[in-house]
């Protein structure tokens, strides 16, 4: 079904250019031998070198990975349950609770969680960040799982039940494998959302719990060195690897 429409293609090409040009510039400047992001001076690896000696950056990266792994794992479990529940039952409260955090601007969740943690007298740090990240990740996993549930043929599970499978067996042997691409897509989304989140983290972060986005924010704000370009380039490469890997392992996961 190809319709040749030059104008359409031209605008689309423009949109792709718009999407990629800025990232391309960041990558190029990460190799520029000048402290100022102005004119091109010469090729260098020194910003990468500096980056790997920057302990704050490394520890922020470690924090980000820990938070993203834990919150993606927990949110995947909770989100899968929610997604299945929303598909199977006519519920009133749960869909609202699942969708609201997605619909609310991030800043609202950030400040309300800040007030909440302060009220509990909880010290802000890795734990508060992780709890917050789980909250906004659940919805995305739930939606991804719910979408997949709709695609599953109900007669399969019904047949299994008729043949005498227990609900658990039925879930384990039929629903779960069929659901896997949805769960994996949700988990992946949760992981990237968590590792990418700046706004909510900004409000609930405490001492020594700086994450990569927070670190980047302060670097961008102060804008002292092109190390920012280097870390950005590395992050792009990392996500690229992550996506390719997922696409290879689970060809269906990205589409849903």
């Amino acid at each position: 079904m190809t319709r040749k429409n030059r104008l359409l293609k031209l605008v689309a090409l423009g949109a792709y250019l718009f999407l990629y040009l800025p990232l391309f510039i960041v990558i190029v400047y990460s190799f520029n031998d000048s402290k100022l992001n102005a004119e091109w001076v010469g090729f260098t690896f020194k910003w990468y070198d500096k980056l790997f000696q920057n302990r704050e950056m490394l520890s922020a990266a470690a924090n980000s990975l820990i938070i993203a792994t834990v919150s993606a794992a927990v949110a995947t479990v909770l989100g899968t349950l929610a997604g299945m529940a929303m598909h199977q039952y006519r519920l009133k409260l749960l869909p609202g609770l699942v969708l609201a955090p997605i619909a609310m601007p991030d800043i609202l969740m950030g400040v309300s969680l800040l007030l909440f943690f302060i009220m509990l007298n909880m010290s802000l740090g890795l734990i508060s960040i992780t709890l917050a990240h789980i909250t906004f990740c659940i919805g995305f996993v739930a939606l991804s799982v719910q979408a997949r549930m709709t695609a599953i043929d109900r007669s399969l599970t019904e047949a299994a039940r008729d043949l005498g499978a227990t609900p658990w067996q039925c879930f384990r042997k039929i629903t779960l494998p069929l659901l896997a691409p949805g769960i994996i897509a949700g988990a992946l989304m949760a992981f990237t959302l968590s590792i990418d989140d700046f706004v909510i983290t900004f409000f609930v972060a405490g001492v020594g719990s700086s994450t990569l986005p927070l670190q980047i924010y302060s670097m961008v704000k102060i804008a002292v060195t092109p190390e920012v370009n280097a870390i950005s380039t590395l992050l792009m490469v990392l996500t690229l690897i992550l996506i390719t890997l997922t696409a290879r392992l689970y060809p269906g996961a990205l589409r849903s």
Partner: peptide, 25 residues
């Protein structure tokens, strides 16, 4: 030992962080 630094760019920002329970500095 290791010196771990967090930064602020205004007094208000620092006070807000401390009063918001950023304990452990």
């Amino acid at each position: 030992c290791q010196l771990v630094q967090d930064y602020y760019s205004s007094t208000e920002e620092m006070m807000a962080k401390l009063l918001a329970g950023a304990s452990g500095y």
